[in-house]
Design a protein around this nucleic acid. Structure first.
Lengths: 210, 210
DNA sequence: TAGATTGTTAATCGATTAACAATC
DNA sequence: TAGATTGTTAATCGATTAACAATC
């Protein structure tokens, strides 16, 4: 799958469409109209987004739910297993690890697997979280290589986040989800998403005017 | 403070600017050039963003760090206390509650206060998290009113998120940060932000192509 | 066939960048 | 004063919407 560079705005909506299709398992066909209503997006935009990747619909009829769902899974690489590591098993890291491991163990169609957990605290090392043992963060780079991990989740404090990111990158990670409140620097090939909850709350405070 | 409707793209950047200014406490002045580099935004955009709210700089010199910082705090309502409630004290809710309570108790300039915690599980009710006691979710609406809460954080499972949101809205909440994997519906006056971690991971999977 | 809906092109809208006069 | 940087306007860029021919 080698498409031209697709805008992030487009990619961001695809998982949303996928979710709507997965929630409509009972249904045979779905129009861009209906998909749009359920996803909160205009029908024109949905057709335009999908057009970047091919032609998936039938004029006069709409999209075959099962077919479009599988095509979206392929586009998003969700048709194959994706290995992830999570670094920093504090309360947030633990919550995320537990949630995703459970989802992975429960649902065979959920292909995002946490294969490694790491922490700098020796007291946590050796502990088990839903079938994965916490390892020391020192050997992160080599372990990422050994595990073949492609996606990293950072839940460490702000001051160690960049060091961890560098190690993940050195280990060959392709994308990072960062919960530490810092702007990480990484090579252009590595996709970094900052999930900064403090920033988000401060933003919402703006809307709390009397 | 009654500005015309400011674009969300603008508001979203303000907390970022604020953070840079807070990290430069030692510094007297800062140009849009420098602020831009540190925040990862072009200098022109910074000047344009700030221009929506007034004139804060001096030509030929730049911005006074302490002054702009306080002005941004006023714009974002961070100069006054903001009361929040969090609903759903599972592992994610617990992690967020603990993190924010500690930050609030540690740092006197951090004005976002979690004043109420709620859960449907009777076993959790009565438990304490960093000085706040978990209450039953039944009385949510009246408790939100009593506490004067303005901002709500939803960490309940997907199937109860909309019910909780409705109760928060009925209680007079102004903004919601939603971690449940569903698109919530709420009146236009209520600002809803979805922090959907599964969607985010699925999006990142797109960038993990070989 | 008649009705409906796609894929796609053109029009619109909004956000970012470039440029520069004003001025500290 | 000379140099620098703001605030602001005009130009550009990109994303969304509207419209419609193609076609199931």
């Amino acid at each position: 799958m080698r498409w031209k560079r697709i805008s992030d705005a487009v990619v961001r909506r695809l998982p949303l469409y996928l979710r709507v299709l997965e929630e409509a398992k009972d249904q045979e066909m779905m129009s861009s109209q209906e998909l749009g209503e359920r996803a909160g997006v205009s029908p024109a935009l949905i057709r335009k987004d999908l057009a970047w990747f091919g032609e998936f619909g039938k004029q006069g009829v709409g999209y075959e739910v099962a077919y479009l769902r599988e095509e979206l899974r392929k586009i998003l690489n969700l048709d194959k297993s994706i290995r992830m590591v999570l670094v920093g098993v504090g309360s947030l890291g633990y919550a995320l690890a537990r949630y995703h491991r459970r989802k992975f163990l429960d649902d065979p169609s959920f292909t995002l697997e946490i294969v490694g957990l790491f922490d700098a605290n020796p007291e946590l090392v050796g502990k088990d979280v839903e079938g994965v043992t916490i390892e020391p963060v020192d050997a992160l780079t080599t372990r990422v290589k050994e595990l073949g991990a492609e996606l990293g989740i950072i839940c460490v404090p702000a001051d160690s986040a960049q060091v961890v990111a560098d190690k993940l990158v050195a280990g060959g990670i392709r994308a990072i989800l960062n919960f530490a409140p810092v702007k990480l620097s990484a090579p252009d090939e590595v996709e970094v998403t900052n999930e900064d909850l403090s920033l988000e709350l401060q933003r919402l405070a703006y809307y709390v005017t009397d």
